[in-house]
Amino acid sequence: MLDYTFQFGQIVPYLPRLLDGAVVALELAVLSFCGGLLLGTVGAALLTFAGGVVRRIIGWYVSFFTNTPQLVQIYFLYFALPDMGIVLSSFTAVLLGMTLNAGAYLTEIQRAGFESRRQSEMEAAEVLGFSRVQQIRYVILPHVARVLFPPLSNHFILMTLGTSMAAVFGVEELTGQALNINSVTFRSLEIFSVTALLYIAVTLVASALLAVIGTTVFRARMRMF
């Protein structure tokens, strides 16, 4: 690398494309996180309240998706499903894969939160005059939210980084755009270091926002760094 001179000037014209890519990455992260949150809430609720068979199925789902790579899961959706007559666009395959994957992790995370509910419920029972609905509304939900907010935020940041594997399937998110620009300009180190900086910037802003929301709205104990 001794004789290498960085030429960031050459990639300046491509910056808007990288920024577009960052927006797509955030879209992917937010969409799959919301989908995953829904799956995870249902999953955790079933794990906590449902009977044997359902619980075992949810358990298998979580084990399978947390013990196999997201990349290969998406490979399967994108390359194998067409054999069964289901053709997905690359974006849909990535989104579906990330959502299913997130659903598994968020089930596990939320189950822990649901379990911590039991104790707070006992305390709530001692608060005389609270109806069941009021207990849930004023005691249990705030407690669960407070406990769950930090690990959920953390997982969102990991998912934002995880969106980069969409590039493998040709989705033009941040890493995808970087690969495209690289194949035109060949300024690899410049492009990927700028891309890395953009990921750092995006996740830093997201972390900061989440920390502010977490501490003010949910009174969660969080540190930004």
Binding site: M1, L2, Y4, I157, L161, G162, T163, S164, M165, A167, V168, T175, A178, L179, S188, L189, F192, S193, T195, A196, Y199, I200, T203, L204
Partner: peptide, 19 residues
């Protein structure tokens, strides 16, 4: 902790290639 594995991989890959 804030750069995706794929991007780090590309940076290391190209750094070795150029060196």
């Amino acid at each position: 902790r804030r750069v995706p594995f794929l991007v780090t991989l590309m940076l290391v890959f190209f750094a070795f290639q150029l060196s």
